[in-house]
Computed example of a mutant assay.
Amino acid sequence: MAISELQLPATAQVHDLPSGKVLAATLAHDVAERLRAAIASKGQACVVLSGGRSPVPFLEKLAGEALDWSKVTVSLADERWVPVEHPDSNAGLLARHLFKGEAGRARFVGLYQQAENLDAAALKADQALAELPPIDVLVLGMGDDGHTASLFPGSPNLAQGLDLAGSRRCLPLLAPSVPHQRLSMSRSLLASAAFIALAVQGPGKLATLRAALAGTAIDEMPIRAFLHDPLGIYWCP
């Protein structure tokens, strides 16, 4: 199965790339171009990134892009509720792979907050995100279960997290099969991005995308909430 065989919405622009290396470089170039354009037009830019292992090559490429990083605000679509020193921290991932050299001048608005419990941490993160500029670029990933950010099927706060008219910027979420509690941007905040990119690699993720396109229930596969928005899909086998 190839991505060209999928019945994609007309609003999706597909980049069919030969390898993960080319995907990382192409996505980094396109993200940087949009950030440069935002800086040129309004003096600042904002990008929201996703964590995990697969974005590492992209983050390394993005760190080397020439732009005025002092005018860029970076945030995360979601975060595990662990300190930045923890190996599973997405903020720690950015510290290791993005915030180096000139890219170290970027401003970071993270989701992790110290608090007595996850609900309190999410409220503090929600308040911190009030200072986030309008999002110029959002880079999403997708799990094999159809989750994106930390909007997991079966999570207690999923309906609130998927509410396009919701007022919350950040919510406490749970990953059913993974131990860490999560903080996630809400769909209402994520969908406000001027440009959304979805990175998809490998036959397993392509099968997940096919399943997501075949149905409409966003609570079953939350990535469906974004597939009919204007979207750049970056795919490699």
Rank of each mutant, 00 (worst) to 15 (best):
P203T: 08
S186H: 01
L171H: 12
V74C: 14
L118S: 09
L59F: 06
K71G: 11
N90A: 01
S177Y: 00
H15I: 00
L158Y: 11
C170V: 15
S167M: 08
L129H: 12
H29R: 15
A212R: 08
L198F: 05
L140Q: 09
L59S: 04
A103T: 04
A25F: 03
C236G: 01
V178N: 10
G64I: 06
G202D: 04
M185K: 05
L171S: 04
I39N: 08
A38P: 03
K205D: 10
P134E: 13
R168G: 00
A12E: 11
S70Q: 15
P230T: 03
W81L: 06
D219F: 01
Y112P: 06
A45D: 12
G51D: 10
A194Q: 15
D68G: 05
A2L: 13
M142A: 04
A106S: 14
A197K: 02
V178T: 09
S89Y: 03
G202I: 01
S167Q: 15
K21R: 12
A120F: 08
A37R: 13
A217M: 05
G64F: 00
K205F: 08
E220H: 10
R107K: 12
L123A: 15
S188V: 08
G92S: 02
R36N: 12
P87L: 02
V137T: 06
L158R: 13
V178C: 06
P176R: 08
D119W: 03
